[in-house]
Each structure stands twice: as structure tokens, then as C-alpha cells.
Design a protein around this nucleic acid. Structure first.
Length: 483
RNA sequence: GGCCCCAUCGUCUAGAGGCCAAGGACACCACCCUCUCAAGGUGGAGGCACGGGUUCGAAUCCCGUUGGGGCUGCCA
């Protein structure tokens, strides 16, 4: 991908759509980046074009291959697959050097030896912010130790035709002579982006709104370098914001895609939720398959205002997708969470068959896959310890609890351990105690399952088995204060 | 400060001049279902930031104000 496409001989011939996602590997990959990537991907699929992944690692100080790995694995997890790349700007340096040399040779750019400090000192005294053009007329040779700045026209207007925002006008007078190449020789992203978009024959630049202010610079550079190749279409999608309505930040906000994966969110739920942030299909449906998104996605329908990344809504979608899984799929996808080293039981105590038997009941209750172990912990964790708060509330402070546990022990010694028979047995206990079934089972539930809420009791006792059930009921009985 | 963007329930949104006494979803509240918890069902509360225009008619168009955000780096 280092050559320009052959000029179109027939200007009416359709140009193959090529979109790109160009993250910089300077921090963990957050959901805002994922949403931008998704929109790019959706458009590429929708138009039957190519999705190019380009890693913008021109800043050697801040870039780290580990972050690149994170981006690639997150995109893979989400199923946002790239058709070409990943390309690394750090490997394409010669292209930027050549472009810089050309701009300098043609007088479109000039060398500057002002230090950032002196520039700042001067601009602080001026009404107009930005570089003051001090080196414009000095005709300094372009060499190591000097930055290269673009000579922005003093007059005129640069218009960005934006697919989601319409035409946005910038007075050239408000654009400073921006730096293209650092004094250490490294190119800056404005230059690299334009060179690459041109070289890679990109037709659509879809990126976050924060890039809108730099777009007129890209347009100026494109005009200087593209030799007439048409400018790509631009689309600046709204940023994702936190609860304080600020742009999601890698530093400030804990919203790494990787974190959601670790918590047990399904990628299809994440994708569905992300797609609906700033976009919605014409008929208002919310649960959409990938194909439906592809078929219906249009940049023209993307909103212009920022959207808040609402985890509660994400959780809702996750539950929807989780429950829509077949039981077998659910078991399969829960497996990594049941076999992780974070699990609250010793691996050898886990029993797949026991889990599988209860899986449908677990599936109905888990909001994320990460919640699965907690729901079945009582089956596998040894030694068994009821939750202290639950014990205090349902047993220690319930004067009837002792009698109920005793009655339960008596009847469960002989009853068949099937949900139906267990239900009849506990109903009998409830009757003896003069309570409703739900109230009567509370102490039994805490004594055997350790919590006051969770899976249905009878199926759980069946899975636990008679021996352990009786053991736990007796243990609880023995721990009642004053009993 | 300068440049730019944005503005419908708490949140995500539908709405492209009359079909809107503004619809859906999440969250919230109540009830139903129910062995707990979920899930599900029913109902409820809750919004067009403000002010001017344009028009027979404006959430929808224009202007202004206010508010929020982004950029303002030899980061991307």
C-alpha cells in the first residue's frame, strides 16, 4: 500500500469506498474509540468497501506496542474486522519525509527555529493566539533542529464539507502556521494523516468530533499534496461523554473495552449498544443484528450531539443477548468465567454436569457472565460460609428460624431430592410454621445457599444433594445464638 | 480569551411545518405473576433551555441569548 491508485480514466466510474480507522496507541482502548471503529466498519460493509486499520504511532514518546495489542484484541473481540492492515505510521516515515521535502521545496512550508517557549512568550503578548509567523520570511534551510511549518494563506476561507454536520467554514486567518515536522525530524499527525489517506486512497474519513478543528489544515495540505485527487468525504461523529458530559478520556474515565469484556459483557451486546449511540435505524428498533445494522446504517442519520455512555443501558442489552443464547451457547460462553483463577472455589471442586443442570436458571438471572460464578458458588466453594448479613437477618434474628430448620432437617432426611418432592416437603414445613412458603424458605435458603436471593431453592437443593443439604442445615442450627 | 460544534423526559433516542394535548427504550415508582431473586406483563411520574421572528400553523425554519462541549501541543 505504498503507491497511489491509478488515476481514474473515467471520472464517472464508481470509486471503491475505502474507510479507515486510525487510533493512536497511547492508552487503553476505550468505548468511544470502539464506537468510531464500529461506525467506520458499518459504513465499509454497507458500501461494499474496504475497512483499513492504521495505527498512528508517530509520537514515539507516547506510543507503546502494548496499547496496539489492546486495540487489535478489542476490535477482534467486537468482531470489527479490518480488511487491510494494521499499517503502522512508524514504518512509513519515508513517505512523510518526502511530502515534507516537497512542501518545503515548493515554498508551501518553511523551516522554523523558534522554541516552543519563545513562541509562547510572544503569543502571550498578542491578541491573536497561535504562532505569529516569525520565521515565515527568514528563508531558513530545513534541517535537523528546525521544525517545518505550513504556510497558511492569510486570507480566504477553507470549507469542510461534513457528512454529519454540513458545511463548516474556517477563516484561514484564524488558522496558524501549524507544525508539520518536529524539530527532531519526526512528522506530526496532520502531515502523516493526509499523506496516508492519500496514499491509501481513503474515500471516507469518519472520526470523532474532536478532530473537526484540525480538518481545515488537512484540507489545505490535501490541496498541496494530492495533485488533484479528490478529497475524501469527512464525517465527524459526536464524542462519547462521561456523567459530567466531558469527552471520554483514557486517563479520567474507566471505560476500557477490555474491562467490559472481563466483566462478562457479550461483544454482540456491546456492539448493539454502541451502534445506538448517535445513530438509530429508521423504524426505531433497538435490538439489531449486525446485518441489520449494516443494511440500515447511514452517515446522514448520525446525530450531532454528544452521547453519554450509560452502563445501565449496556447492562440491559447484555441481559437481552445473554437470555437469547441457547443454553448450550450460554454454558460455552460462561466457561471462561467458571474456569478463571478469580473463581471463588478450588478448580477441582467445580462440576460441569452440576452447573449445566442449573444453567437455564442461571442464564435467566445473570446480567453479565461475570455474575455467573457468584450464583453457583454455594455448590462448589468449600468450606461453605453463609453470608453473615444474610444469616443475621434470616436466621439469627428470626425467632422461628430454629424450628423451621429443625422441621426441614426432619423431613429432608427421607424425602426424595427432586424439585417437586422438595417443594412439597418445604411447603409442609411452611404449613407447620404457619408461614407462607416464601417466608418459610428464607432461613433454609440462607442456611444452604448462603444468600437470601439467588437461584430457585428446590432445584438448588436437588443439585446440592441430601448429604450436604442436611449438613448445612445442621450447621446453621448449631450457630443460632442461644439455641 | 480565540476558533468551531451542539441543545427533545435523569439517560439513549423518534420527530425532517400541520398525523405531537411530543412516541419508544433504559433507569425510577406502583401493581400483577411468583418458592427468593431475576425475567415477563400492566400502569405511572418525567422532556421540546429561553427570547424574538417567519408562517394560517414551529419541537421542527431564521436570529439572538443562555447553557454544555471540542480544539487552541514540536499529542492524536
Amino acid at each position: 500500500m505504498a503507491t497511489l491508485p491509478a488515476p481514474m480514466s473515467d471520472s464517472s466510474a464508481p470509486i471503491s469506498p475505502r474507510v479507515r480507522f486510525a487510533p493512536s496507541p497511547t492508552g487503553y482502548f476505550h468505548v468511544g474509540g470502539a464506537r468510531t471503529a464500529l461506525f467506520n466498519w458499518l459504513l465499509a460493509r454497507r458500501l461494499g468497501g474496504r475497512f483499513v486499520l492504521r495505527i498512528e504511532d508517530t509520537d514515539r514518546e507516547r506510543s507503546d506496542p502494548a496499547w496496539t495489542e489492546g486495540i487489535l484484541s478489542a476490535l477482534t473481540w467486537l468482531g470489527v474486522a479490518w480488511d487491510e492492515g494494521p499499517f503502522f505510521q512508524s514504518e512509513r516515515r519515508h513517505l512523510y519525509d518526502a511530502a515534507a521535502a516537497r512542501l518545503f521545496a515548493e515554498g508551501r512550508a518553511y523551516a522554523c527555529d523558534c522554541s516552543p517557549e519563545t513562541v509562547k512568550a510572544r503569543t502571550d503578548q498578542r491578541a491573536v493566539p497561535g504562532y505569529d509567523g516569525f520565521c515565515r520570511g527568514r528563508a531558513l534551510p530545513f534541517e535537523r533542529g528546525r521544525a517545518l511549518r505550513y504556510r497558511v494563506p492569510d486570507e480566504g476561507t477553507t470549507v469542510v464539507h461534513d457528512l454529519v454536520r454540513g458545511d463548516v467554514e474556517f477563516q484561514n486567518a484564524t488558522i496558524e502556521d501549524f507544525v508539520l515536522v518536529k524539530s527532531n525530524g519526526d512528522p506530526l499527525f496532520v502531515l502523516a494523516v493526509v499523506v496516508d489517506d492519500l496514499d491509501m486512497a481513503i474515500t471516507h474519513v469518519i472520526r470523532a468530533e474532536e478532530h473537526l478543528p484540525t480538518t481545515p489544515k488537512a484540507v489545505l495540505l490535501w490541496d498541496a499534496l494530492a495533485d488533484g485527487h479528490p478529497l475524501p468525504a469527512f464525517a465527524h461523529v459526536p464524542v462519547l461523554v462521561n456523567e459530567r458530559r466531558q469527552k471520554l478520556s483514557k486517563r479520567r474515565d474507566r471505560v476500557a473495552v477490555e474491562d467490559y469484556r472481563a466483566l462478562g459483557y457479550l461483544p454482540e451486546a456491546m456492539v448493539n449498544y454502541l451502534a445506538l449511540l448517535g445513530w438509530s435505524p429508521a423504524d426505531g428498533r433497538e435490538v439489531l443484528s449486525r446485518q441489520e445494522m449494516i443494511d440500515e446504517f447511514r452517515l446522514e442519520d448520525v446525530l450531532r450531539s454528544p452521547a453519554f455512555f450509560d452502563e445501565r443501558r449496556l447492562l440491559h442489552f447484555n441481559g437481552l443477548y445473554l437470555r437469547a443464547l441457547s443454553v448450550d451457547e450460554f454454558i460455552e460462553r460462561a466457561r471462561p468465567f467458571l474456569e478463571s483463577d478469580q473463581v471463588p472455589w478450588r478448580p477441582e471442586h467445580f462440576d460441569t454436569a452440576v452447573f449445566s443442570a442449573l444453567a437455564p436458571l442461571v442464564q435467566e438471572r445473570a446480567g453479565t457472565l461475570g455474575e455467573v460464578p457468584g450464583l453457583v458458588e454455594f455448590l462448589f466453594a468449600e468450606p461453605f460460609e453463609p453470608d453473615p448479613d444474610a444469616f443475621a437477618k434470616a436466621i439469627a434474628s428470626d425467632p422461628e428460624a430454629g424450628r423451621i430448620l429443625e422441621a426441614a432437617i426432619a423431613i429432608l432426611e427421607s424425602v426424595e431430592f427432586s424439585p417437586a418432592a422438595l417443594r412439597r416437603a418445604i411447603e409442609e414445613v411452611a404449613e407447620q410454621a404457619g408461614r407462607k412458603l416464601g417466608k418459610a424458605q428464607a432461613p433454609i435458603r440462607v442456611a444452604t445457599m448462603g444468600r437470601s436471593t439467588g437461584l430457585p431453592l428446590f432445584e438448588s437443593l436437588e443439585a446440592l444433594g441430601r448429604e450436604r443439604t442436611l449438613e448445612r442445615l445442621n450447621a446453621a442450627l448449631g450457630r443460632i445464638p442461644g439455641a
